[in-house]
């Protein structure tokens, strides 16, 4: 393909497969990671949601807990995708990244493998959270559930590739809490997950609009909530949401492939 030597498609696909398989194995093996990944959304849904439901009146029969359900799905995806991609910093710190970088596979495949790792584990967690739907008094037909999972996978892919871009800038895992506090938490609060973007002050609305998670949460609201008017309705058209997510994915994958090329 290029002068650096021919690119063998089978090798590239095998590499992507094995990078995803590794992440999946580790995900299943680490019980504590699995449990805390599922506990966090439940705390938000049932503790924060229950308290806030007393303050916020239901709109068109939709309670606050039901309103934040798409946002909680978005949060689940955000945390698990970023966590999956940030593991690159661990791999750098403990040397395993070198094993991957000296292999005869393209940087693009390594990035794809990592982005798909985050996609797979995040979508599985989102599916588990969907099992809580009856507990908040919601039900969705099978077609919508499939559409919701597809959107979840798309959002997971774009957030994971964003996480890879982040991971290339940090060399040690001490930066983990910096990333969590200054990037992940603001991304969550400014995504429209807990309160509508259109109610935010102007300056924060701008930040929300460059946050890829905002469009993910918005797309999920389109699919899961019947409200089409008023403050609790979606903020953007559905196709805009999907378009932005796809565009963000392409941009982040391109940037991280370039960054890997250089740093590798």
């Amino acid at each position: 393909m290029d002068e650096r030597g021919s690119v063998n498609l089978t090798i590239e696909l095998n590499a992507i497969y094995v990078i995803v398989a590794r992440e999946f194995k580790k995900f299943i093996r680490e019980r504590s990671r699995l449990i805390s990944a599922l506990a966090r959304p439940m705390i938000w849904l049932f503790l924060v949601g229950a308290g806030m439901s007393r303050l916020v009146r239901p709109v068109e029969g939709v309670s606050y807990t039901q309103f934040i359900f798409p946002g909680i799905l978005g949060m689940t995806i955000l945390f698990s995708s970023i966590f999956s991609s940030i593991s690159i910093i661990w791999d750098k710190e403990f040397g395993f990244m070198k094993e991957i970088l000296v292999a005869p596979v393209s940087r693009f495949s390594i990035v794809m493998g990592k982005a798909l790792s985050g996609t797979v584990v995040s979508t599985i967690q989102a599916a588990v959270i969907l099992l809580l739907l009856p507990l908040v008094g919601m039900s969705l037909d099978p077609v919508t559930i499939i559409l919701v999972l597809l959107v979840c996978a798309l959002v997971a892919f774009s957030i994971s590739s964003f996480g890879i871009v982040l991971a290339t800038f940090y060399e040690s895992y001490e930066s983990f809490s910096v990333i969590m506090n200054f990037i992940v938490m603001p991304m969550f609060f400014l995504s429209g997950a807990m309160y509508p973007v259109k109610l935010l002050p102007q300056a924060l609305q701008i930040v929300s609009k460059v946050n890829p998670l905002t469009y993910g949460v918005d797309a999920l609201k389109h699919l899961m909530s019947p409200i089409r008017e008023g403050p609790m309705s979606p903020d953007f058209p559905f196709l805009t949401d999907i378009g932005v997510i796809l565009l963000a994915s392409v941009v982040f994958v391109a940037i991280s492939s370039k960054l890997f090329e250089r740093k590798g």
Binding site: N14, A15, R22, F96, A103
Partner: peptide
């Protein structure tokens, strides 16, 4: 390499088969 580049959370078999896949 000088420093170990194994994945400590995988088994010996998994580390080696990961490598085999990566090298086609």
């Amino acid at each position: 390499f000088q420093d170990t580049t194994l994945d400590k959370d995988l088994t010996a078999f998994e580390n080696l088969s990961f490598h085999a896949y990566l090298y086609g």
